[in-house]
Design a protein around this nucleic acid. Structure first.
Length: 460
RNA sequence: GGCGGUAUCGUCUAGGGGACUAGGACGGAGCCCUCUCAAGGCUCAAACACGGGUUCGAAUCCCGUUACCGCUACCA
């Protein structure tokens, strides 16, 4: 995972090594890890990894009324699932109340803040003719006239800190050098800059990321269906695909790169590629991308995810799968190219695990329309197949094609009824692969079972 | 309302003054491949919000308008 570009980084002035960047993701634990939050976390993480810095996690739980331990756990799980590991211990904002108060008091002591009539400590905005500016990493220069910034509250009358105070105090304490967050915080930034200055702390660099919207162009909400990263895990999305998809929402490596692994993302991630426009979250494209990852991810890397789902679906135990590792790998290999989600793949895998299969009515109606003829054809197939010496795709194909020719019918006219007999479905991998994966015994048994069904009820 | 931000196909985006007849991808339509379904290949429809500048030349730079979003809390 070494970064080949690091040495060529132009931002590194000759002689002095660039300072190690420190970034943080600071969600408030009031709900599950949202895709927007996940994207913010991802960009922070990617930046830290690309520039060999640190990625820290801070839980902003100062809104005790809305914060829950369950949400905090969900955030950890979401980040872990995505593979976004943090360094150092998690910082809980609520545990630093005293420092927040102390910093606020320093401001009062220096005259930079005062207690108002209602007992609130407010920051005093001075220099009303001037402006507060910064060079945003994604937007460039942003300026706010000071006259438009009101004296804002930093400590409530009960002495608990407000957002801007707590964030600045924490970011200074954590020595954060780059604050990368959603652009809904742009308006908070001038206030925070004023706080840094009054506290005598060096300013971090700011980077404001665009929002992620729902398919209707509005702010992403539950109305749009799945919005938590955990939802996508349940839906059978691979973490690698999720990360790849999220990375392309608000960032572009330039050119036509689309499918990328986490490692490639780290190597390619540069703030220059950060976009300013809000992006719409399109689940359809995520599914397509997941299909691409299912097909391209090395099998050994993919298998654990599939195994988990197969076991959860009660199709097999993990011991079963280990015992038939080669067979299992071959099965997943033929199924993955025609699946878009893990759920999808597991559904298609079902006929290969159970002793009995469910016959899909439409498939039966279509492929077995002529029940007597089909029964006859399946009987002949069974006989031909049973006579065969080995059970390899090549031999199987030769046998079946010869039978079709002998009967004077197109191969497909034989394969499709057979497919329904073997899987119960109108759709499956190639018929010879199905035969092989099912194995000789089970295949012959299924054909017999189909023949029995057809002759027991010739009318259907 | 004030302040701030944003504006390329339906969606994600490439583009950073001439290489633009604006490229790729998802989705859509069609064709090919083919035992079904996928995957894959090919083709088609589809965009520079509007108006002014600057310039020999603007999707690219500047200004305005419009639209959308955010902030404007003793929320974060």
């Amino acid at each position: 995972m070494a970064d080949p570009h690091a040495a060529a980084e132009p931002s590194a002035p000759s002689g002095s090594p660039p300072p190690r960047p420190r970034l943080r993701f600071a969600p408030s634990p009031t709900g599950f890890l949202h895709v927007g939050g996940a994207r913010t976390a991802l960009f922070n993480w990617l930046y830290a990894r690309h520039f060999d810095g640190d990625f820290l996690l801070r839980i902003e739980d100062t809104d005790r009324a809305r914060s829950t331990d369950e949400a905090t756990r969900a955030i950890f799980e979401g980040l872990e699932w995505l593979g976004l590991s943090w360094t150092e211990e998690v910082v809980y904002q609520g545990a630093h109340l005293e420092r927040h108060q102390h910093d606020a008091q320093r401001l009062v002591d220096s005259g930079a803040a005062y207690r108002d009539d209602a007992g609130i400590i407010r920051f005093r905005v001075t220099d009303h003719d001037g402006e507060t500016t910064w060079t945003d990493l994604v937007h460039g220069r942003i300026a706010f006239p000071n006259k438009d910034i009101e004296d804002f509250a930093i400590l409530r009358s009960d002495a608990t800190p407000l957002y801007n105070m707590a964030v600045v105090s924490d970011d200074i304490a954590m020595a954060i050098t780059l604050v990368m967050r959603g652009d809904d915080h742009i308006s908070n930034t001038p206030k925070q800059i004023l706080l840094y200055r009054a506290l005598g702390a060096p300013l971090p660099t700011f980077a404001h990321l665009p929002m992620i919207h729902g398919i209707d162009g509005k702010k992403l909400s539950k109305r749009h269906g799945a919005t938590a990263v955990g939802d996508y895990k349940e839906l059978g999305i691979l973490p690698g695909a999720m990360v790849n998809f999220l990375a392309l929402l608000g960032w572009s490596p330039g050119g036509d790169r689309e499918i990328m692994t986490l490692a490639e993302l780290i190597g390619l991630f540069e703030p220059d590629g950060l976009l300013r426009k809000a992006a719409v979250f399109d689940p359809a494209k995520l599914e397509w991308m997941n299909g691409q990852h299912l097909s391209r991810t090395p099998l050994v890397e993919l298998l654990p995810h599939i195994t988990h789902a197969i076991v959860a679906a009660d199709l097999a135990t993990s011991a079963d799968l280990t015992a038939r590792a080669d067979w299992y790998a071959a099965l997943v290999d033929v199924l993955r190219v025609r699946s878009r989600t893990i759920t999808d793949l597991v559904r298609q895998a079902a006929p290969f695990f159970s002793d009995t299969i469910a016959y899909d009515p439409p498939a039966v109606a279509k492929a077995w329309a002529d029940r007597a003829g089909t029964s006859d054809l399946l009987r002949a197939s069974h006989a031909a197949l049973r006579r065969g010496t080995d059970w390899t795709p090549a031999t199987l194909e030769a046998t079946l094609r010869a039978l079709a020719e002998e009967r004077g019918i197109a191969a497909g006219k034989l394969f499709q009824p057979l497919r329904v007999a073997l899987t119960g479905l109108a759709v499956s991998p190639g018929i010879f692969e199905v035969l092989q994966l099912l194995g000789r015994e089970r295949s012959l048994a299924r054909i017999e079972a189909a023949v029995k069904i057809l002759s027991d009820d010739p009318a259907g």
